[in-house]
């Protein structure tokens, strides 16, 4: 998979179509984001499958936002999986990145990663390497929904009580681009005090993920307390679909989550 990507990136860089390629580089046993600018020097370019598929991913779109803001006329390539592509579309729709500044280089995730992620679309529309895996439905959400109300409350309270308020879930999130964050607003919570105001601290973040979360699962991976945040955000994406008839990242980038609500029949 790495070789196909390298060839594509080399071609793009040498043709001058892109100024740089934002991908992952393995160096001294560590995988991190890196902007490749020389087509002849793609030493260490990897797709993030170190010990098992997708075990070293990174919110590249977050870096891409910074790069394209710093250079508003440059065009950059970026490594995308299915989730990253959904993220890109949503960021295009909300005006955070201009689509003409980005050339996505897609890879499809293998089936075992798609299974672990319960991913609805484990492949980008256009892919350079990999075979499209079968989509999976949200079994973790269904499991919580099968519980009684008080059982759910106990479950989430137990999970949330592990929170050390490190803000890791927010910091890693490729869709968290606000310059001011409610979670750091003293009118909405006690900043810097533990325990976090549970469950409201996490529910606030969850409601802010509405129309944004593209289900990349980095929040789950980064959480030092192993809180299953992804399940909560998967549910909020389901809710957005029920209410707004669209799921962020799955439609065309021109239509951000339907805020065209005038004239729509409302049930309450």
């Amino acid at each position: 998979m790495d070789d196909k990507i390298k060839m594509k990136v080399q071609e793009l860089l040498q043709s001058g179509k892109i100024k740089g390629f934002l991908g992952l580089r393995e160096r001294h046993g560590q995988v991190g984001p890196y902007l490749f600018t020389d087509g002849d020097d793609l030493e260490g370019l990897v797709v993030g499958d170190r010990f098992k598929p997708g075990d070293s991913r990174y919110p590249l779109n977050k870096q891409l936002m910074k790069i394209t803001r710093g250079d508003p006329s440059g065009c950059y390539g970026v490594l995308v999986r299915g989730c990253d592509e959904r993220g890109l579309k949503t960021l295009f729709g909300s005006g955070q990145i201009k689509s003409e500044q980005v050339v996505p280089v897609g890879i499809a995730c293998p089936q075992d990663l798609a299974d672990a992620c319960e991913c609805l679309k484990p492949y980008p529309d256009e892919r350079v390497a990999g075979e499209a895996a079968e989509p999976r439905s949200f079994a973790t959400v269904a499991k919580v929904e099968a519980m009684e109300l008080d059982e759910r409350f106990r479950l989430w309270l137990a999970e949330f009580s592990k929170c050390i308020k490190c803000y890791g879930c927010r910091n890693i999130c490729p869709m968290c681009y606000c310059s001011e964050c409610t979670l750091e607003n003293k009118d909405f919570g006690d900043i810097g005090s533990l325990p976090a105001e549970n469950p409201v601290f996490h529910l606030t973040r969850a409601i802010h993920m509405a129309g944004r979360c593209i289900d990349c699962g980095l929040c789950n991976e980064v959480c030092p307390a192993d809180i299953p945040l992804r399940t909560l955000y998967k549910k909020i994406a389901d809710i957005v679909e029920e209410e707004f008839h669209c799921r962020p990242g799955y439609g065309s980038p021109e239509t951000p989550p339907g805020l065209n609500i005038r004239g729509e029949e409302l049930k309450h």
């Binding site: 919580v144 519980m147 109300l149 759910r152 469950p199 809710i239």
Partner: peptide
Amino acid sequence: KRVAMLKKLLAFSGI
């Protein structure tokens, strides 16, 4: 819309 969404989230989190 917001209240409808929040109601569903509350139900999911056991409130």
